[in-house]
Computed example of a mutant assay.
Amino acid sequence: MSEETILELKDLSIQFIGKQVLNQINVKIKRGEIIGYIGPNGAGKSTTVKIILGLLSDYKGDVIVFGENIRDHPVDYKRRIGYVPENGEIYDDLTATEYIHFIGQMYGMGLEQIEQKFTALLDKFELKAVRHARIATFSKGMKQKLLIIASLIHDPDLIFFDEPLAGLDANSVMIIKEMMDQLAKAGKTIFYSSHIMDVVEKISDRILLLNQGEVMADGSFMELKAKNKEGTLEQIFNQLTGFDQHEQTATDIVRIIQGADQHE
Rank of each mutant, 00 (worst) to 15 (best):
G104P: 12
G61T: 10
K145T: 03
I103W: 11
H101P: 00
Y59L: 01
Q116Y: 13
K124A: 13
G36D: 03
L94W: 02
M106A: 15
K140V: 08
I35V: 15
L122M: 09
T47A: 05
F118S: 06
K28D: 10
H132G: 02
N41L: 04
A133G: 01
G32M: 11
P74G: 11
G61L: 12
V49G: 03
I51L: 12
Y83G: 08
E112H: 09
P40E: 15
K78Y: 06
K143A: 10
E112F: 01
T119Q: 03
N26R: 10
S46E: 12
G67C: 07
Q113W: 04
R71I: 08
H132D: 13
A96Y: 04
E98Y: 01
V63F: 09
I52N: 07
F102T: 02
T48H: 04
L121A: 12
K45H: 06
E115R: 13
G54C: 05
L121D: 09
L127Y: 00
G104F: 14
K140P: 00
V84F: 09
L56A: 04
K30D: 04
P74R: 10
L55T: 06
A96K: 02
Q113F: 12
T137C: 00
L122N: 14
S57P: 01
L55H: 01
V130M: 09
Y77A: 07
A96E: 09
K28A: 14
L94D: 07
L127D: 05
P85I: 10
A120K: 12
G54E: 15
E68V: 12
F125S: 00
M142C: 05
R134D: 00
E112I: 07
L146P: 00
K145S: 00
L122R: 01
G39N: 09
L121R: 11
I52P: 03
G32D: 05
G141Q: 05
Q105T: 15
V75K: 15
S57E: 10
I135W: 10
Y59S: 06
R71E: 14
V75R: 14
A133I: 00
A136K: 14
Q116C: 11
T119A: 10
I52F: 07
Y77K: 04
H101I: 14
S139V: 02
L55K: 06
M142F: 03
K124T: 10
S46L: 04
Y99K: 02
D62N: 14
V75L: 15
K50E: 15
H73M: 04
G67F: 05
H101R: 15
F66G: 11
K117C: 13
V27Q: 12
L55E: 15
G104I: 08
Y37V: 06
G36W: 07
N87D: 14
V75W: 08
N69F: 06
K45R: 07
V130P: 00
K45N: 06
A136T: 10
K143R: 14
F138W: 01
R31L: 08
P40D: 10
A43P: 10
D58P: 04
Y77T: 07
I35G: 06
G141A: 00
E68M: 13
N26A: 11
P85D: 11
G110W: 08
I135V: 06
G54Q: 05
M106V: 11
T119S: 13
S139H: 05
